[in-house]
Computed example of a mutant assay.
Amino acid sequence: MRTATTREPGELFGPRFALFADVLVVGLATAAASLPLLTVPAAMSTACAVLDRRVRHDAPSTAGDYVRALRGRLRRGDLPAGAGLLAGCALLLFNALAAGAGLPGAAAFRPALFAAGGLLAVVFLRACARPESATSWRAALRSAAYDAVRRPRGSAVLLLAVATAAVCAWAYPPLAFLVPGPLSLAARATEHHL
């Protein structure tokens, strides 16, 4: 009988390493599915759902499971959500470039810009982890925004996860392809526990 702490014969790392491996596989699959950029919300939402099943039912996750789940979750509402996400990111980037180019009051504007970007990232990740994201992004975003303010501990944990992912991707750019997996796991964990 296999338990959470015993190793099967021939198994190198044991069952606790399986979740880590699944997070990396889901992260790579999410990065590949996000390459068209408009599919980022659907890809992250699917990653949260796949990792949620992995943790709740202790069933291994594969790239094939992820692709099947993504195919089943893609709908017409995902493209406007992706376009909205791209527009928000473009607006933040434009404002950051303007602040860096000598915008009057940039010293006060930069912290506000970082706070807005952090809040938007937290709301986006919370929305992806919500089950409503499979049917209505508007409902998922509304409840995620409410939870981001009402449950500040979970929001702080997600903000730290985003900051850590950004630093890791900045320090070693190939890690950017693995970042969606841990961010999805963090979003899923804060949704259920914080």
Rank of each mutant, 00 (worst) to 15 (best):
T30Y: 02
L113E: 00
L103G: 07
A134L: 05
V50Q: 02
G154V: 04
P41Q: 03
G154H: 03
L160K: 14
A83N: 05
A116K: 06
C89H: 09
L37W: 04
E132P: 00
V55E: 06
F109M: 07
L79M: 11
A63Y: 11
C128R: 02
A115K: 02
W137P: 02
G82F: 00
A115H: 01
A115Q: 02
R110P: 01
C89I: 13
A42L: 05
A33P: 00
A42G: 05
T39Y: 01
A99N: 06
R75D: 13
A112C: 10
N95Y: 14
G64V: 14
T30F: 01
L79Q: 06
R56G: 13
D65W: 11
A63E: 10
V67H: 03
A112I: 07
T135S: 14
F114Y: 14
R126H: 08
N95C: 15
A101C: 12
V123I: 15
G154T: 03
V149A: 13
A121V: 04
A33G: 02
L70T: 04
G64C: 12
G72N: 08
L93I: 10
T46N: 10
R53Q: 13
A29S: 05
L74C: 09
L85S: 01
L35S: 08
G154D: 04
C48F: 10
F114R: 12
Y66T: 01
A107I: 10
P152N: 07
L158N: 09
A148P: 01
G84Q: 02
D58H: 15
R153Q: 14
G100W: 05
L35P: 06
D65E: 13
L74G: 03
R54E: 06
S155A: 14
L91W: 00
D147R: 11
A31M: 08
S61P: 06
S155I: 09
L92C: 03
A121T: 05
L92S: 00
W137Q: 04
